[in-house]
Design a protein around this nucleic acid. Sequence first.
DNA 1: AATGAAATAAAAAAGTC
DNA 2: GACTTTTTTATTTCATT
Lengths: 157, 157
Amino acid sequence: MKSIMNMVMDDIDRKIIDLLSGDARRSLADIGAAVSLSPSSVNERIKKLLADGVIKRFTIDIDPAKLALPVAAFVWIALREGADEAAFRAFAREDRHVSECHHVTGAWSYLLKVQVADLAALERFLATLKESGFLARSETVIALSTVVAPPFRVKDT
Amino acid sequence: MKSIMNMVMDDIDRKIIDLLSGDARRSLADIGAAVSLSPSSVNERIKKLLADGVIKRFTIDIDPAKLALPVAAFVWIALREGADEAAFRAFAREDRHVSECHHVTGAWSYLLKVQVADLAALERFLATLKESGFLARSETVIALSTVVAPPFRVKDT
DNA sequence: AATGAAATAAAAAAGTC
DNA sequence: GACTTTTTTATTTCATT
């Protein structure tokens, strides 16, 4: 089976992932010292983790507030009967405000997480959503504060 | 005011952030070519963005499924009357399954996002939550599929 | 702030076990 | 797979504008 071919991950790989999660700029020598491996071996393992898609990319974790996007909100979506679900998904993928979009169990069909400049921007986002014609109804919950934040990065353009 | 002292960000900084978001291993020369700046100038700007906390860290984006954590779920939390909220927040910060925790508006007090190995692990997590004594009640919504995923990284240990 | 040149450090490649 | 050595590339520092 191709998808799991050569995908044996061991404790060293997991440790490398831990270390890179904390600081992706650590040198191969530094990581090697931590896992008792030569820099080249670490390099080979990282290349393999990338090739296997375990590591999706090297990126930066940004403070959204410092990028003038301090407001996070969750939007529950019930799609209108007969809505073009593929188009809705494309909208979620492309819209810069949407940082997460999940198809979910329960009373609603989708849950969006959006990251915006202020409540006015949130209101405009919701207006856009309504105008797009996907929705039967929606419900919005605002994050007053965040205790555990996922990494934030700007969407590809 | 100290918190905003020297925090003038321009279009070049934003472009550098865009480029690093897409691939944090791009060389300074490469980024410099994209923004018409020398490698040293790009280096100085990145250092400043780190010092200012705009860039929180260089990290990797992992595929949680390939780390054997394929199940994402959202847990709405109503805290029990008189619950130790600081202790609840500490729990959320420390528990490895909790990838997000937000204090939210609306009928519930908190929203957690958890990333687990399977439904059994989710059940165990919810049991732990209940045993901890923070909850009045909770409601769990499972992500059937994810259209837009935030970066995922392992929590600091 | 930005630059180029010099110095240092790191990563990638090649070849061996 | 992992190691060492060599080569190539990248980063950092620093004096100058």
